[in-house]
Amino acid sequence: MSYLVATSLEEALTYLRDSGGRARVVAGATDLYLKDLPHSLVDLSALPGASVIEEADGLITLGACLTHASAASSILILSRATALAEGCMAIGSPQIRNIATLGGNVVNAAPAADAAVALVALGASAVLVDTGGRSREEAVEDLYVIFNRSAVDSTSEILLKLTIKSCGTGEGSAFTRFAPRRALSLPLVNAAARVRIENGCFREVRLVVAPVKPAPTRLLQTEAMLEGMAPCEETWRLVERAASEEVEVRSSLLRCSARYRNHLVGVLAARVLQAASERAREEEGVDGR
């Protein structure tokens, strides 16, 4: 195998192009040994701006090679995209969080990847560039083909950065998961939400759960139902039922039964909405003072 730590985007793209599909892009490389090793690898983690965290005009830009640990401890992400910080903190272990990247979490395309679930709830976009020099921007949830397969072809396309509209006045986000163990564990269900509260009512809710489909899944019907509703006990009860009814999940010998998972989807959806709405109201209160 040959291994290139690319120092410029041009170098990386040229290498991929010249390799004719035999080279693959890698960032944290934590899942490298789980699959067949490719002929060669292009490591993106040293690219300029690969780990950037910046905000301009209400838009947060994150380098695709930002590690989970860096994202989880960023004041900006903690305050303006809280769900992502929480999702990043939930993954694996400190060692994994120190090396695994946001881009990898998306392109690896695991159905219940914690950071990806948070990104989809936050409405993140992915900025991609391919070996032909074409650039595109896609919603993160549109980057999934089937279970564990991304629409990003790692032999010819690079996920450069992720952008998120930062949470402002009256907005809040949250992430939660349910796992059999408190560390080193995949979730049975995870959920994330981004909400805006206006005059005490939900507006523009994004509610995401996984694993349901290949991509982190928005609960569009539940979201629609919530429009205009107030965050209160009655609402959480309705959300619990609506979310459970909206999804069809699978049984897994290693995780849990479909029935239980379905139940958890409802509980977690309600909890994550509640957490997000409490943050939104804090924001509303702070900014309105």
């Binding site: 059999p180 163990r181 408190r182 560390a183 080193l184 564990s185 995949l186 290693l254």
Partner: peptide, 12 residues
């Protein structure tokens, strides 16, 4: 595997 045969971690 240690991922799926879950012995307690320091948080458990």
């Amino acid at each position: 595997s240690f991922a799926d045969y879950r012995i307690p971690t320091s948080l458990d």
